[in-house]
Design a protein around this nucleic acid. Structure first.
Length: 1022
RNA sequence: GCUGAAGUGGUGGAAUUGGUAGACACGUUGGACUUAAAAUCCAAUGUCCAUUAGGACGUACGGGUUCAAGUCCCGUCUUCAGUACCA
């Protein structure tokens, strides 16, 4: 009997599907365990070998937990709304729903053949109306909520209305828009409904507001901050500009503190938590109010600033506002108006990216206005400068040049006085006093100084002065202690088609929610997926997209009368909407009446192990935590963190193959540029014609530039190859110019990606396959080494454009699913980035063949009831111990090695005992479930191996009587000596010293010291 | 700049609370089997010196602690990732 992996894979995959082996139940006497993968976006390209890495790890863990007696929930689904499907629809006119369904089919086939133990009965798709019905429902809940700062949680908006009606908003401590007007109960009750709605909108957790957004013209949509990388869009790398638009936003800033605190309660990686902390960006300090000194014609203004260093307030020598700051136009004096306006115009022209790229150039303008120092009452000039960001804090800073490098540079540049307020306790550079220091740069440390020139703060250190400054500001009513967060509210509208429609219609411009019982509001059909001619989002193309408030259904736009039929929202929700709560839906994914039943939510509670990529650190993982906390406040979910433990799997990189194109240039001899430079001195024979083998590249390049061919053998060869083509070019060039040509081979070589499937394990290129690959390579010539063309190799991210993608389908066909699973784990630690190299898979494949042979020979299964040998039991139990430890530490690579060692040992021992081979199979089955099931059933078991209990480790089998001690001299191991483990320290010392090899090493010297660590080592110091 | 992770043979990577560095594989070399190839099996494989016995050096670099350091401490360098005028 041979190991026929393809048959075995198919047989057991069918068995698992038919018997619903991995279906989880929502109540059980067993303890629950929820293992989740970040669900995939089903792209048209399908899976490559990098994608299943995390799924394999989580699958091993899920299977392990089942063996341990847990009721395991291990679901899978698709994040199926998104931009690529829409872009494809725009290009081809195919409905995104169709292409998405096709892509999902491919994904499912690819996933199935790897043998995952997913409970597919719980599959979710975010683009499915039965799913996004509840995404819409959550949106409505957010709309109907506000954040009470006194209780630090979300509460019903109807409660807020009651407060407004009975006592106004003066005492309401809510997270809301900045510029809220204060009103009494009488005023509130007298407001029109429209005005009341407008005010309430400023308190809701999702709100409609004119905000400055990141507009991406190429994609025709806005982007969230985390969708922008280095100033360009994450998808496509298009430019992004700032633009004011009316958009839905999510008031995630309300949860900033809880999102920060919650990090301490979950077992996520430090780097990921650090990213989130960074993104939330908490800073503690004070807000300070500066009065603008009123000129005779103007009304009074104040400038609010946020500072983390209220202790340095006496060092303020100017103030700086962001150019976009609202006050700028109001306080600028007529004399400075021209300057200021010119500066604002100049900064507005600079894109976000330019501003980021160029942080060194100092620029700004004086407004002509002065503010008053709250303590000294001295006038302080007010400047504007683009180093102050409109989006952070209040968009204005009190500038302390002696204590902040940016303020310092600005002051130096514009000759603004720098007041020194620091007396260093131990000045840098020894003898220098603080004034000398300040002459060169700002002093930004928080310790090592006391204050001077600072009135009542003189002589105090940072801590004391900060406290006192805040106290004094509060006494004067000019400020208070304040905590500021970098986290901005998240824009929630997208001008796209393929996303969740909002359950929203508009009456007199005010948004109205559609009642939950009428959900889902289905995505309408459109003719075109592009924005409309009037610049509206793609849903503007829909003809049936109005809400009839009497029939409670979506009707034709023609019926809009603004009395009972109203226009629906044209934006759709962003990609992260559906992914922010899907982990809860899996608990009860087919429930039509609820988001998920309370019973299911209380049973499964949260994800015990979540595995996915680190690229979601500040997007999906932050938004999901936000929604979870909100749903917890509403009493919908029982816990306020959705994932207890999270592991980021590393990326599997591709090993790209390169061929080296020689760029050949013909040059006219003694050529001089003509005046108008229209005549080119070069004729470039654009290659794709001559490729040089990898190991010849370096010798070729080491020669001086543009060597004359005739002298060099290599180039001679090149010219021979290309000469027929060249002849025509020569003739033509000679005729046209009447000049001599010299033929030069440039020393430029361009590496070009070749498809990795053309290359064998020895890096040799299949030249014919390469030639047939693309038209331009059809008549290419190859300069070989030792009769073959060798490619160069480099490790890069796997991608279609680099032709280094390895398809798991091929691996599964050639080696079987178990080989793929084992190899992905064997490559290295789960979290690490590591290159894929298909050649290496023979190692694990051979292991599986050896495993097969351990159980099966030509006559069939050879496992019997023979008594297990001591050695075999020892091998088994050390394997149980190691594998169990490894799985629990997510060290899957080392457990594969352990299996290899075990099988090698048992093969040597000729073990056939069921007592050893049966438990061994259970150990291996999470990793290689197909072969395990097959051997398990060959051994006569009727039930799936997944129902077997994990073997118990018995330490008694590992008890040793002797230890092979390493004997070292001055820490260097010289020989080993087998001694009984129960030997005393003294006896060991005597025995070792008496040993002839010891005497040889010592050569008559007396050792100074002998270290004996029983059971470990002997070290002789001499 | 800041934050986080990491640096070990030709390659991927092992190494428990400091205790035999290089497990397990890939690759390479040699051998067996074969008409041959593939497959399989056996052996060798950190570098250098030495016929052998054996020795020296070795975990990015420089110091230190220790009987003993890949592991701990101080400093430096490099790579990767995230973030960036955050007041």
């Amino acid at each position: 009997m041979t190991y026929n992996f393809n048959e075995i894979d198919a047989k057991w995959q069918k068995y698992w599907a038919e018997n619903q082996t991995f279906k989880a139940v929502n109540n059980s006497k067993k303890p629950k365990y929820y293992v989740l993968d970040m669900f995939p976006y089903p792209s048209g390209a399908g899976l490559h070998v990098g994608h299943p890495l995390g799924y394999i790890a989580s699958d091993i863990y899920a299977r392990y937990k089942r063996h341990q007696g847990f009721n395991v929930l291990h679901p899978q689904g698709y994040d199926s709304f998104g931009l690529p499907a829409e872009q494809y629809a725009i290009q081809t006119g195919q409905h995104p729903a169709l292409t998405t369904a096709e892509n999902i089919k491919t994904y499912r086939r690819q996933l199935d053949q790897i043998g995952f133990s997913f409970d597919w009965s719980r599959e979710v798709r975010t683009s499915d109306p039965s799913y996004y019905k509840w995404t819409q429902w959550i949106f409505i809940q957010l709309f109907n909520s506000w954040f009470n700062n006194n209780t630090s949680k979300a509460e019903e908006i109807t409660e807020l209305e009651k407060i407004f009606a009975s006592e106004g908003n003066a005492n309401v401590n809510a997270v809301c828009d900045d510029n809220i007007e204060v009103f009494s109960a009488e005023e509130w009750n007298g407001y029109t409904s429209e005005k009341q709605q407008k005010i309430l909108l400023q308190y809701r957790l999702t709100y409609l507001a004119e905000t400055e957004v990141n507009w991406c013209p190429a994609l025709g949509t806005v982007l969230a901050n985390d969708e922008i990388v280095n100033g360009v869009s994450e998808r496509g790398g298009h430019t992004v500009v700032r633009k004011k638009m009316t958009q839905w936003s999510m008031r995630i800033s309300a949860y900033a503190e809880r999102l920060l605190q919650g990090l301490d309660t979950i077992d996520w990686t430090d780097s990921l938590k650090e990213s989130q902390r960074n993104w939330i960006g908490k800073s503690v300090g004070a807000s300070v109010t500066f009065n603008v000194i009123a000129s005779e014609t103007k009304q009074s203004h104040v400038i609010d600033v946020f500072t983390t260093r209220p202790d340095t307030i006496f060092g303020v020598s100017f103030m700086t506002l962001a150019p976009e700051h609202d006050l700028v136009s109001q306080i600028t004096t007529p004399e400075q108006k021209a300057d200021v306006e010119a500066y604002i115009l100049a900064t507005a022209k600079r894109s976000e990216r330019d501003r980021m790229a160029d942080v060194k150039t100092i620029s700004g303008a004086f407004t002509g206005a002065y503010a008053e120092h709250p303590f000294t009452k001295e006038p302080i000039p007010v400047w504007i400068g683009d180093y102050v960001l409109a989006g952070y804090g209040t968009g204005a800073v009190m500038s302390v040049p002696c204590g902040d490098q940016r303020d310092y540079d600005f002051a130096k540049h514009f000759n603004i006085p720098i007041i020194n307020i620091f007396s260093p306790l131990s000045p840098k550079g020894g003898t220098k006093n603080s004034d000398d220091l300040i002459a060169a740069e700002a002093f930004t440390e928080k310790d090592g100084f006391t204050l001077k020139n600072s009135g009542f703060l003189d002589g105090m250190n940072y801590k004391k002065a900060t406290k006192r400054a805040i106290y004094e500001l509060e006494q004067l009513g000019f400020g208070e202690g304040k905590t500021n967060y970098r986290l901005r509210d998240a824009v929630f509208s997208r001008q796209r088609y393929w996303g969740e429609p909002f359950p929203v219609y508009y009456v007199d411009g005010m948004p109205q929610m559609i009642a939950a019982e009428h959900l889902p509001i289905r995505l309408p059909e459109v003719e075109k997926y592009l924005p409309t001619e009037t610049g509206e989002p793609p849903l503007g193309n829909a003809t049936v997209w109005a809400w009839d408030t009497t029939k409670n259904e979506v009707v034709s736009n023609d019926l809009i009368d603004d009395k009972t039929v109203f226009a629906l929202e044209l934006n759709t929700m962003p990609g992260w909407a559906g992914s922010s709560w899907y982990f809860n839906r899996y608990m009860d994914s087919t429930n039509e009446n609820e988001f998920a039943s309370q019973e299911a939510l209380n049973y499964w509670k949260d994800v015990d192990l979540y595995i996915g990529g680190s690229e979601h650190a500040t997007g999906h993982l932050l938004y999901s935590r936000f929604w979870q906390k909100f749903l917890f406040d509403k009493g919908v979910v029982p816990v306020d963190e959705f994932a207890k433990k999270l592991i980021n799997q590393g990326m599997i990189l591709g090993t790209s193959a390169f061929v080296y194109r020689v760029d050949i240039v013909l040059q006219l001899q003694d050529f001089k540029w003509t005046e108008d430079k229209t005549e080119s001195p070069y004729l470039e024979l654009h290659s794709n014609k001559v490729f040089i083998s990898y190991n010849l590249v370096k010798p070729f390049l080491d020669k001086t530039e543009n060597v004359i061919i005739e002298d060099k053998i290599l180039e001679k060869k090149i010219i021979e190859i290309i000469s027929p083509k060249l002849k025509d070019k020569f003739k033509k060039a000679l005729k046209e110019t009447g000049k001599e040509l010299s033929i030069k081979v440039s020393n430029l070589i361009s590496p070009i990606h070749a498809d990795v499937s053309f290359v064998n394990a020895s890096d040799e290129l299949d030249i014919d396959a390469f030639k047939n690959w693309r038209k331009e390579f059809k008549d290419a010539e190859f300069i070989l080494e030792n009769g073959v063309y060798k490619v160069g190799r480099d490790v890069e991210k796997m991608s279609k454009s680099k032709y280094n993608v390895v398809n798991p389908d091929d691996i599964v066909a050639d080696y079987g699913a178990d080989s793929l699973r084992l190899y992905e784990m064997f490559l290295g630690p789960l979290e690490q980035y590591k290159p894929w190299n298909t050649a290496g898979i023979t190692g694990v494949h051979n292991f599986l063949k050896k495993l097969w042979k351990l159980y099966v020979d030509d006559n069939g299964i050879k496992v019997n009831d023979a008594e297990a040998s001591k050695d075999a039991l020892k091998t088994l139990h050390k394997t149980i111990k190691k594998v169990q430890e490894d799985i629990e530490n997510f060290s899957f690579n080392t457990s594969v090695s352990t299996f290899m060692i075990a099988v090698n040992e048992l093969t040597t021992q000729k073990c056939t005992s069921k007592d050893v081979l049966e438990p061994l199979l259970v150990l291996i089955s999470p990793y290689a479930p197909h072969i395990a099931e097959e051997l398990w059933s060959l051994m006569g078991n009727e039930e799936s191996i997944s129902t077997a209990a994990f073997p118990e480790f018995d330490a008694s089998h590992l008890v040793e009587s002797a230890k092979n001690y390493p004997i070292s001299f001055n820490g260097k191991m010289r020989f080993t000596l087998e001694l009984p483990l129960d030997m005393s320290k003294e006896a060991i010392e005597t025995t070792v010293l008496a040993h002839e090899k010891t005497q040889e090493q010592l050569q008559g010297r007396t050792p100074k010291k002998v270290i004996v660590v029983p059971g470990k080592i002997v070290n002789i110091v001499g």
